[in-house]
Simulated assay, not measured.
Amino acid sequence: MEPVPDHCPGTQSESAGKVSACQGCPNQSICSSGSTKAVDPGIEQVKSHLGNVKYKLLVLSGKGGVGKSTFTNLLGRVLAKANENCDIAILDLDICGPSMPRMMGLLNEQVHQSASGWSPVFLEENLSVMSIGFLLNSPDDAVIWRGPKKNTMIRQFLSEVDWGNDLDYLIIDTPPGTSDEHLSLVQYLKGLPQIGAVIVTTPQEVSLLDVRKEIDFCRKVNIPILGVVENMAIFICPKCAKPSEVFPKDSGGAEKMCKELDVPFLGSVPVDPLVTRHCDEGTSPIDSASPCVNAVQSIVQKIQEKCSTLS
């Protein structure tokens, strides 16, 4: 008897909808029916809608608090400024903790729905943002949803947002972990070309343990890993320029882990209070003389190079 998988077996598997990993999935009944005609129609809707998006980048983290949304914010801003002829979009899929509206300086913005779908909020002419935060009455409102409702919202975000032009990069900021949102996202993106994952971690072992699970998740669902970013690696004193470790690298940090797991290491990003202040205020730090921004710019160049190898 084959062992029961500890992850989604896939819609084409004979075990689809029938194993313990399928419990609680909103599509369990569809998968277990065995009917190819019962496949979620949203998959085709997403495939058609995102057909003109060149690169789909998933920003992932094994645990919360590692600066994933901050990195997504900087990634989008750097790409948009460095490539003025490219159209960049950020999709905030952290349903219960949307951070993009505040970080991008769009806290009081709202989206509007038309015949062509939801209109995202444009920060720059070539940089747009979509988040559930734009749909809430107040930034303090809690989103208290079960899996099926989250799944529906993710499908709508992927298939009903009118980005305006053909996108060069769609950057998807995901919640931490490997749960409902991630499975729904992978299911809807399945079959689309040029998808890659950027995984963000901090140096200490408690974070690296969870990132190993994120790497395992990507491999099991066949998402190419562009690389790992080590965030908050050091703190550089703005007065004396002396570097200090914020988190201990007792196990060698992210770079050593990447060598062990044969995953690309994209680089380390230092802590910078100036960038934190910009994120809180919703302003752009990328024109500042910040070691954090310099590190991110170098990492973005590597991400662009690796995107060109995606099939």
Rank of each mutant, 00 (worst) to 15 (best):
Y55I: 04
V46W: 03
V198E: 13
A89T: 08
P101I: 11
Q12M: 11
H49Y: 09
H278P: 00
V129F: 02
P243L: 06
D272S: 01
L192I: 10
N137H: 14
I299E: 00
H278W: 00
D168A: 02
S251K: 14
F157A: 07
R146P: 04
L167S: 05
L106R: 05
L79M: 12
H7E: 07
V46Y: 03
D210M: 07
N83L: 09
T283V: 11
E44R: 10
P176D: 02
Q297Y: 05
N126V: 07
V111W: 08
A241C: 13
V293T: 01
L50M: 06
H182C: 08
G76Q: 06
Q304A: 00
E205S: 13
V4A: 13
T276M: 08
I144L: 15
Q45G: 08
L261W: 13
C307E: 07
N165Q: 12
S131C: 04
L57A: 03
D162G: 01
L136E: 07
G133C: 06
L135I: 05
H7F: 15
S128G: 12
Q301W: 00
G105Y: 01
S311T: 14
P291R: 01
I30L: 15
P264H: 11
Y188V: 02
M153S: 10
D250F: 11
T174L: 14
L136S: 08
I172Y: 06
V271A: 02
D40Q: 05
K56M: 01
S35N: 07
I95G: 05
M104L: 13
D280K: 00
E245M: 15
R77D: 08
S308M: 11
E84H: 10
V4T: 15
T174Q: 00
T36A: 02
G76S: 04
C279A: 15
R277Y: 02
E2I: 11
A21Q: 10
T309N: 12
M1F: 07
D210Y: 09
N222V: 13
I215N: 11
K63T: 10
L93G: 09
D262N: 15
C237Q: 10
C25T: 09
E255L: 07
G42Q: 06
E160S: 15
G227E: 11
T201C: 10
E109P: 06
